[in-house]
Design a binder for these strands. Structure first.
Length: 564
RNA sequence: GCGCCCGUAGCUCAACUGGAUAGAGCAACGGCCUUCUAAGCCGUAGGUUGUGGGUUCAAGUCCCGCCGGGCGCACCA
């Protein structure tokens, strides 16, 4: 996996008690020190030797192949000077032969993975806060498919509850209702429910009617939620986000599998009916150690189920599909809730999915709220980004017609938004800044796309069919070498991202590559290089960079562009 | 009050999971388009990694205590 692992072999041959995992080998902090640096802290500990002593021993006793030009010990580090042509050539050949698979470690080969994400309540147009869930989830889907998992994407449709009941009351003539107006209706419904207890009561009554199986009410609920779901999916599709299956909450109203689960809880005396006739789980009986969050209500006094009950049924259903890995993406506000669910499931011998949390996107004056209409709609945000991108494309690509320009602009807008969200670690709060999120300069998705567009421009002008290897590959500038070693580290980055269930390292990697490439671009003329061998070598470097960046962006759900 | 997450340059974020001189972008200042796309590049300036202890050959990273922010803590979904 590590592109320099081969350098370890002579060392391992010499010290039979050590293995590759006892060493770290990676590009040196800067080129003056060397091409790659060996760290042997773990190995030294195993041999009960001070690290500098072991490094000196290795330098003294181990003989390396001809690809190692020189060695220099620097305290606990051993710095290698390498034959860059040999390594660079190997990197490029690897990238250009594995193509769109370059970077994949195939760690999910033969395994299935089920992921649930987004699952926005079907009551209004999604806001950018919710979109964080969708983008994080969707990129994980892409990451794990890249790693050869068989991935199924589920979306839980919360088509029940008082909120939906209220909305149904507001939506008599659904036909004439544009999707974006549903938010206004929803906000109005919630305001009315606040001030008018009768109206609020009507919401509950409608819900009860729906739960009791009244076909007309069920039809209304379905129509309203379906209308909202369709509208939401259309917005999400603009970001390239799609799902395989939609699971409606109303399907899990009564699930016979939950009788067994409640039975298991009864056996452990972890469930009781309280003085108000509600069915409650006492989590302290099954491993919960604090007072906070100790009780979990399953059923109301009237026998209707709570959200958490239906969600348990849904989870049992999902887990029953037998995927090797089960994930769900949740806002951090669901942390305790997910832990409670996992405890209940564990008590009944049922497995629980692995949760991936993300923190909220906040407005400058606090949290977004769909109920209060205090939101930035994803659709508006996309429109604005598209408009700004279109202005830019119109300046840049004057020879293209408007339709072509707009197609590019939409992809640039998506890149800006997805990248801005995905490059930040998921458990970091984000304060939404309209200007910063719509910037196309600096460390952004469009900057990465721009690097690719420049490469494409060079390769177009090159004119000839692209070579895949060169027998006279040569590297004579540091920026070429830095770029290539960065490219070669892509599989490790992907492995890290998959292990952490976090795509942010891939975004950071794409930026690092783009920066390394632009330094190379300014320093090394490609088409006007000094010799045919150098032209060919640099063309290969460009092609390898394009392939790597394209693959990294694909994981983030961002398209590479021919030009922009 | 209790639990979880976060705190790194004026601002937004990195830092190969404990390793060499803590790196990018934005904002500021100074350069670079008759040469492969200036959505760019080069340079200057900007840091006691919130704070006080501890562990270690080595701490932004691990442990404990404070301070500040976010989220949550039974009949919402």
């Amino acid at each position: 996996m590590n592109p320099f692992d081969s350098l370890l072999q002579p060392i391992l041959d010499h010290y039979s008690e050590l293995s590759a995992g006892d060493f770290q080998i990676a590009p040196a902090p800067n080129v003056e020190m060397g091409d790659v640096a060996l760290r042997a802290f773990v190995a030294a500990k195993k041999l009960k030797m001070p690290p500098p002593k072991l490094i000196a021993d290795i330098q003294e006793a181990v003989s390396f192949g001809p690809e190692v030009l020189s060695l220099e010990a620097a305290g606990p580090y051993l710095n290698f000077r390498l034959d860059r042509n040999v390594f660079g050539n190997a990197f490029v050949a690897d990238i250009l032969s594995t193509r769109e698979r370059f970077g994949s470690n195939g760690s999910g080969k033969g395994q299935s993975l089920l992921i649930e994400h987004t699952s926005i309540n079907p009551n209004a147009s999604p806001h950018v806060g919710r979109a964080r869930n969708a983008m994080i989830g969707d990129s994980l889907v892409r990451l794990f498919r890249f790693e050869s998992y068989e991935v199924r994407v589920h979306y839980y449709v919360n088509d029940m509850g008082r909120q939906i009941g209220l909305l149904v009351l507001m939506c008599d003539d659904l036909e004439s209702m544009v999707f974006d107006d549903v938010l206004d209706a929803y906000v109005e419904a919630n305001e009315r429910a606040e001030s008018d207890p009768k109206f609020a009561e009507q919401g509950y009554e409608l819900l009860a009617k729906m739960e009791s199986g009244d076909p007309e009410t069920q039809r209304k609920f379905f129509e309203v939620t379906e209308h909202c779901l369709k509208g939401q999916l259309a917005v999400l599709a603009r970001l390239g986000i799609e799902y395989d299956e939609f699971d409606r909450e109303s399907k899990y109203l009564k699930d016979p599998r939950l009788d067994a689960l409640v039975g298991a809880l009864e056996e452990r005396e972890a469930v009781f009916v309280d003085e108000d006739k509600r069915l409650v789980v006492d989590l302290s009986k099954i491993g919960h150690t604090r007072d906070e969050g100790r009780y979990f209500v399953l059923m109301r006094a009237n026998g209707s189920s709570m959200y958490g009950y239906r969600d348990l049924a849904y989870t049992v259903d999902k887990m029953g599909k037998g995927a090797d890995v089960n994930l769900w993406v949740l806002g951090e506000d669901h942390k305790l809730y997910a832990e409670q669910q996992a405890l209940i499931l564990a008590a009944a011998g049922e497995p629980a999915p692995e949760s991936i949390y993300y923190a909220y996107i906040l407005l400058k004056d606090g949290k977004m709220s769909t109920r209060q209409g205090k939101v930035i709609l994803l659709s508006e945000f996309l429109d604005e980004a598209g408009r700004l991108a279109a202005e830019r494309v119109a300046e840049q690509c004057t020879d293209l017609d408007t339709e072509e320009q707009n197609a590019i602009a939409e992809k640039v807008a998506v890149a800006a938004i997805r990248f801005a969200i995905l490059r930040i670690g998921p458990n970091k709060n984000v304060i939404f800044d309209w200007d910063a999120s719509l910037s196309f300069n600096g460390d952004t998705g469009p900057y990465v796309q721009y690097s690719i567009a420049r490469i494409n421009s060079i390769l177009r002008k090159y004119g000839k069919p692209l070579p895949e290897t060169s027998d006279k590959f040569l590297i004579d500038v540091d920026s070429e070498w830095s770029l290539l070693t960065k490219l070669a580290s892509f599989p490790e980055t992907v492995a890290t991202a998959a292990r952490q269930r976090n795509c942010a390292p891939v975004a950071q990697f794409a930026l690092d590559v783009a920066h390394a490439f632009t330094s190379f671009y300014h320093e090394c003329p490609v088409l006007a290089a000094g010799s045919d061998a150098q032209i060919e070598s640099r063309i290969l470097i460009c092609a390898a960079t394009r392939q790597t960046l394209t693959n990294a962006l694909a994981i983030l759900g961002i398209e590479a562009l021919e030009r922009m």
